[in-house]
């Protein structure tokens, strides 16, 4: 460790011949993993498309049971957190350890806010009995209303799990930043978690209008 800057030099793993090769492998691996994430969520979106085509009126009614205000608030949280994530990578590239750490912290807190709002939303749904068919006791005109809420909980639930995993990754990054492992020569994990975070963001960009803003 360099005592003056607190930076730990990164060593290339033994089976790679250069740090560029190592970075290329990490990048490609992450992108391929994100492709699997896209398809994983994609299945739910296909289910959504089919059901919406079958019951258009029910979806319009169901969306009126959701609060677009809370949804918009969450969208703002998530988009802003994507921005702070970018800024933390940028800080690492500029060797600014403190700034990198604080940007990660803000990202983490914004994610926590997202989950907080989500919890409020879920609580409201529980209160009104707007749940999947097993426990559905809500009031609505459409007969197939439970179908929407099954889908709603599956989609936002899976997305929420991804946010929680992302929060775990952010904690891991904060610890490593504190240790001084990221600097202009090595910040691969930061960039890869960043990519993951943007895809989670991307999913929400689709989810929010498709669930909350149906007309």
């Amino acid at each position: 460790m360099d005592s003056a800057t607190g930076i730990k030099q990164h060593h290339v793993a033994h089976h790679f011949s250069s740090s560029a090769q190592e970075f290329e492998a990490a990048k490609l691996g992450t992108l391929v993993f994100l492709v699997t994430e896209v398809l994983f969520f994609g299945g739910l979106f296909v289910g959504y498309a089919i059901l919406r085509m079958m019951y258009p009126a029910m979806f319009v009614e169901a969306a009126s049971h959701l609060s677009w205000q809370l949804g918009l608030l969450n969208t703002i949280f998530l988009i802003t957190s994507a921005f702070t994530m970018i800024m933390s990578v940028r800080s690492a590239q500029l060797n600014k350890r403190q700034a990198c750490f604080y940007f990660l912290l803000i990202t983490f807190l914004l994610a926590a806010c997202f989950m907080g709002v989500k919890a409020i939303e879920y609580a409201q749904k529980f209160e009104h009995g707007l749940l999947p068919a097993m426990w559905f006791s809500g009031e609505g005109v459409a007969e197939t209303l439970p179908l929407f809420f099954g889908l709603y909980f599956a989609m936002t639930g899976l997305h929420g799990i991804h946010i929680i995993v992302g929060m775990g990754l952010l904690i891991w990054l904060m610890i490593r930043t504190r240790r001084g492992e990221f600097y202009s020569g090595y910040f691969t994990p930061l960039e890869m978690v960043g990519l993951y975070w943007h895809v989670v963001d991307l999913v929400w960009i689709f989810l929010f209008p498709l669930l909350y803003l149906i007309r």
Binding site: H10, S19, F23, I76, I79, M87, R90, Q93, G185
Partner: peptide, 28 residues
């Protein structure tokens, strides 16, 4: 077995600030 880190410049690119801020605002 570990090789010393060579100071080869990465093919990394730092995204200019104006693009990130611009994107943030337009997304919101």
């Amino acid at each position: 077995m570990q090789t010393q880190h060579e100071e080869v410049p990465h093919p990394h690119f730092m995204i200019p600030l104006k693009y990130t801020v611009g994107t943030l605002i337009s997304l919101l």
